[in-house]
């Protein structure tokens, strides 16, 4: 799915534009647990989240995520915007809840990661 389609499907507003409308988004994911994003986040994934602190942007950087969608029209604090600008992450905002935003994107054809497991969780 292209970024512009994601924005249309979510009736979203771009808060910080660091990628063009034709940026390809291969997969989507949603989490409020940043460790989950670090464990399961795929490169290029659109991350839907209800968190707005700067560490969301840091997490995205580490996981190779370019686009973050803030759900329920959450406002990002200035330090989050500043870090996103510095690291070249695109921030968008949608009025839908996490559940509905995910549902809309999935119905519109943006796939998830399927069944994921931590491969090695015993040592």
């Amino acid at each position: 799915m292209k970024l512009q389609e994601l924005i249309k499907v979510l009736n979203a507003e771009i808060i910080l534009e660091n990628h063009g409308p034709d940026e390809d988004i291969p997969v989507g994911g949603a989490a409020d647990l940043m460790s989950d994003v670090l464990a399961f986040g795929a490169a290029g994934m659109a991350l839907l989240t209800g968190l707005t602190n700067p560490q969301v942007v840091r997490t995205a950087e580490m996981a190779g995520i370019n686009v973050i969608v803030l759900v329920r029209d959450k406002k990002a604090p200035p330090e989050t915007l500043e870090l996103a600008r510095e690291l070249g992450v695109t921030l968008v905002r949608t009025g839908y809840t996490m559940y509905e935003a995910c549902g809309r994107l999935f119905s519109a054809g943006l796939p998830g990661l399927g069944v994921v497991r931590i491969r090695n969780d015993s040592w």
């Binding site: 460790s35 989950d36 968190l51 560490q55 969301v56 931590i118 491969r119 090695n120 969780d121």
Partner: peptide, 15 residues
Amino acid sequence: DMGFGAGMGLANIKR
């Protein structure tokens, strides 16, 4: 509340 401290850190590092 900030999305950390879920007890997955070391598991992630190990993986």
